[in-house]
Write a protein that binds this DNA or RNA. Structure first.
Lengths: 145, 145
DNA sequence: TACATTTATTTGATATATCAAATAAATGAA
DNA sequence: TTCATTTATTTGATATATCAAATAAATGTA
């Protein structure tokens, strides 16, 4: 395969890393809580830390299409992790809040989420993390021009 | 949002970068060829450069589940980009080959694929690419332990 | 050879990704 | 106020992701 130039391997390795990380997260999370996905857990964290976010804001935070957010939130409501009402100040918007079950789930998952991050970043220095962050941001900006 | 430690931002930025890159690729590719996706184009490149790969090998190369490979290849065959026969040496395996249409498509797409890579990596030095590659590989290995 | 095990691919079920179009509420301008 | 435009969310259609289970061919072993 002719994919061994720095250009191609770098982009290739991004895909590889994120998939390995997601697999790890999914595996460890589903060991603890059966019916929640990594994406749903992340949204739960966001809803727990921030009040009165719109679905669009959530989508922007997690880099997901608004259509995906609609569907993910519907599933999360069906499973009792969140409540979805209507914002009376602006009836186009929904009013999202985490339920008690959602908060409890976060408490239970919290060590696993931390473990996943630590596992992924084992033996990587803070310097390297900053480099990584800087370079990836350049790529993101380049792509979003 | 409390996601501003180096640990979290780094992992977060991987997701962000790969999504931005995929969006860019999809947008530019679909401008040229209507009915092909980035994933399909990548598999086409691989099939063009390598003969007699199994579906599992392709899956390993592009970090995809074998079930996904089955479905993607079926779509690609339906659209005439590849032929899928049976390997008579081992009848469990399929015999994959790129069609003339597939090769022509690659020729047409080749400049766009190169442009996408160059766009994404504009103003990033080879040193940085190597750093990126090294760090991401560490993450991948950490996750796959 | 006969049977258990392994390997390659497929299928089913469910979740997410993406684009386009639809819906409905809010806003701006005449 | 009225109508066009913008904004937030939803829906439809199709592609991909993921796990588990099914299928069928190949291989190993008694």
């Amino acid at each position: 395969m002719k994919v061994n130039t720095p250009t191609t391997t770098a982009l290739y390795s991004i895909e590889q890393a994120i998939k390995a990380y997601r697999r790890l997260c999914n595996k460890n999370i589903s060991k603890i809580i059966e019916d929640i996905t990594v994406d749903q857990a992340l949204i739960l964290i966001i809803l727990n830390d921030n009040s009165s976010l719109t679905q669009m804001q959530i989508g922007d935070l997690v880099f997901k299409d608004y259509a995906s957010i609609t569907r993910i939130l519907n599933l999360m409501e069906k499973k009792g992790y969140i409540n979805k009402g209507i914002n009376n100040k602006d009836k186009r918007r929904s009013l999202l809040e985490i339920t008690t079950k959602g908060k409890e789930t976060l408490t239970i998952l919290s060590p696993t989420i931390q473990l996943n991050r630590n596992t992924a970043l084992k033996n990587i220095t803070e310097d390297e993390l900053n480099q990584l962050y800087t370079i990836l941001n350049k790529i993101t900006n380049n792509c979003n021009q």
